[in-house]
């Protein structure tokens, strides 16, 4: 079986400082991988390198494209990479306003990706957008409202709808539940879990919240100082951590 994403030796330096160093892993279709670590551990740098937002200094990010099979997205042309970003890839930002157009209606936000890939029938676009807003539990009466009038949880759900409407195969998520109320987080996690299963999505989730990865991720990578110190099944890493740092991380979580 071909991995959907094969990351090899990704390294990113900021001058003398290491962003992330020599990160490699394979992600298979339908897998959800969590990346945890404290602030500054390099997890967001790694995510941005993989998603094409940052150019790594070394390494490959090989994606199994629909048309041409495995391609290194680092060396692929920018138009091709951006096309991937509109079709097979999705990116969910921590702050919804980074991933939304705040001056555009909810359905316009969702419809943009459809229009970006050439859909030109207003009625169809609107129907699809409304359907997706329903799937993320945003009431049909709000489709023409701007995201500025939405709560944080709704904005995040809108961002997810906007990302998933073109049926991507790989979703990058940067702290998707960060900054939300605990009750809102639970609802979002439940929603994400359902979508991941129903759409057979693969996902890479960067977070510092171990509860999030326990519920969403099949596999887990623990990062410290830019390097992966431990990787494995999520429950195995959390319940039987091997590395000193992973043990510290797991034992530092308050139990409720």
């Amino acid at each position: 079986m071909t991995p959907l994403l094969s990351v090899q030796g990704i390294t990113k330096r900021y001058g003398a400082h290491i962003g992330c160093a020599d990160v490699s892993f394979d992600l298979y279709p339908g897998e959800v991988m969590g990346i945890v670590g404290e602030s500054g551990s390099g997890k967001s740098t790694l995510l941005n390198c993989m998603a094409g937002h940052l150019a790594p200094d070394a390494g490959q990010v090989v994606f199994d494209t629909r048309t041409d099979g495995p391609r290194d997205t680092i060396t692929m042309s920018e138009p091709e990479r951006r096309m991937l970003g509109r079709t097979d890839w999705a990116f969910v930002h921590q702050h919804a306003r980074d991933g939304l157009r705040m001056g555009v209606s909810a359905s316009g936000n969702v419809g943009e990706r459809l229009m970006a890939v050439g859909e030109r029938h207003y009625g169809d676009i609107r129907d699809k957008a409304t359907d997706w807003l329903g799937r993320v539990e945003i009431d049909a009466s709000r489709v023409d409202d701007r995201p500025t009038t939405f709560s944080g949880g709704m904005q995040q759900r809108l961002q997810i709808a906007r990302n998933l409407v073109t049926g991507p195969r790989l979703v990058f998520m940067d702290e998707p539940t960060g900054g939300l109320d605990v009750s809102v987080q639970a609802r979002l996690l439940d929603l994400l879990r359902g979508l991941v299963r129903d759409m057979e999505l693969s996902a890479i989730i960067v977070t510092h919240d171990l509860a999030v990865v326990r519920l969403l991720a099949d596999r887990l990578m623990v990062m410290k100082s830019g390097r992966v110190v431990e990787a494995g099944l999520t429950d195995q890493v959390l319940d039987d951590p091997q590395h000193a740092y992973s043990q510290l991380l797991v034992s530092s979580v308050l139990q409720v």
Binding site: S107, E112, R126, D144
Partner: peptide
């Protein structure tokens, strides 16, 4: 330069929906 003009239609889309 990349002919990414989906956004232009978003403006027209907003017009119609409003």
């Amino acid at each position: 330069s990349l002919e990414e003009y989906g956004l232009m239609h978003v403006k027209l889309y907003e017009d119609i929906s409003r």
